[in-house]
């Protein structure tokens, strides 16, 4: 009984953390068809922003939920203005340029923070269920990612900004004809996507020892989750994160964490071979 509860929590946690690390990438890819391979580094910078703010005496939740997203969002804005906007519509070129950016940010972080591991302790204590110890922070991550999904859905479905964004996503030329500048919309979208990446990095920062290269651990998973999710933003994110999270946790519990990671990757290869357009290319068509 206790064990099954722990396994359930671990699975929810695996799915939530996949949603969290992929959300920023999914927004940018879903809306702009830009694959931001510097996504992992945006998360890394979110983590550093949090740690720096905490060390300066700011409350940890404020620095995680406010300071980090805004900092990384602004960095994303600069990147969009300087690099990405010249490459819209050139999918492979944007991938390469953002890969270059990711290396650039790794180098920058190494120069500023040094090649050492930094970290902060988790603000929520763990507790025991029966014979098992559970990390209380896992619940925080589950809550944050659930709120994130609901929030994204609410913004896209029921606000004017969301309506404009969805319109520009489907027909940029029509949105432009109606007086909304796609350029501006893309700029705002990239800001939101980067801010989400920063948030994810900040929320995960207490769980990992942060080094300048820690973005690399996220980018592949995020990339796989988003591509396997397919064209629909939220349905795709939710379904592919759900699938991969469960697969990796089942194999982690059954065999070992390494096999869990490998199982996730193998599942991705098989999935893309069967559904080359991603999950929502076939199911939940036309949903958000």
């Amino acid at each position: 009984m206790d064990l099954s509860f722990v396994i359930l929590v671990e699975m929810l946690y695996a799915v939530s953390s996949l949603i969290l690390i992929s959300a920023g990438l999914a927004v940018v890819f879903g809306m702009m068809k830009v694959i931001n391979l510097a996504h992992g580094e945006f998360m890394m910078m979110g983590g550093y922003a949090t740690i720096t703010a905490v060390n300066l005496g700011v409350n940890i939740f404020v620095s995680m939920l406010v300071i980090a997203p805004i900092t990384v969002g602004l960095i994303g804005l600069i990147v969009e203005r300087l690099v990405i906007r010249h490459l819209y519509g050139r999918l492979v070129d944007t991938m390469l340029a953002t890969w270059g950016l990711s290396l650039f940010f790794i180098g920058l972080a190494t120069m500023i923070f040094g090649n050492t591991t930094t970290g902060i302790s988790t603000p929520i204590p763990g507790f025991a269920i029966g014979n098992f110890q559970i990390n209380g922070y896992n619940f925080f991550i589950i809550v944050v990612s659930a709120l994130l999904l609901v929030g994204m859905l609410a913004v896209l479905k029921s606000t004017r900004a969301g309506l404009i964004a969805r319109g520009a996503m489907q027909r940029p030329d029509m949105a432009a004809a109606l007086g909304y500048s796609p350029n501006r919309i893309y700029m705002a979208t990239f800001f939101c996507g980067s801010a989400l990446s920063g948030l994810a990095g900040a929320v995960l920062a207490p769980l990992v020892g942060l080094v300048p290269t820690s973005g690399g651990a996220y980018i592949a998973k995020a990339f796989i989750t988003v591509i396997a999710g397919g064209p629909s933003l939220i349905a795709g994110l939710f379904s592919s994160a759900g699938l991969f999270g469960v697969v990796s946790q089942v194999f982690t519990f059954a065999i070992s964490p390494v096999i869990g990671e490998v199982a996730l990757l193998v599942a991705a290869v098989i999935l893309l071979r069967l559904l080359p357009q991603g999950i929502t290319g076939k199911f939940f068509k036309g949903k958000l």
Binding site: L87, L101, L103, F104
Partner: peptide, 13 residues
């Protein structure tokens, strides 16, 4: 790494 990245970005652009 910073220089490698910069080279890639500049070349793509």
């Amino acid at each position: 790494t910073l220089i490698t990245g910069l080279i890639l970005v500049l070349f793509v652009l």
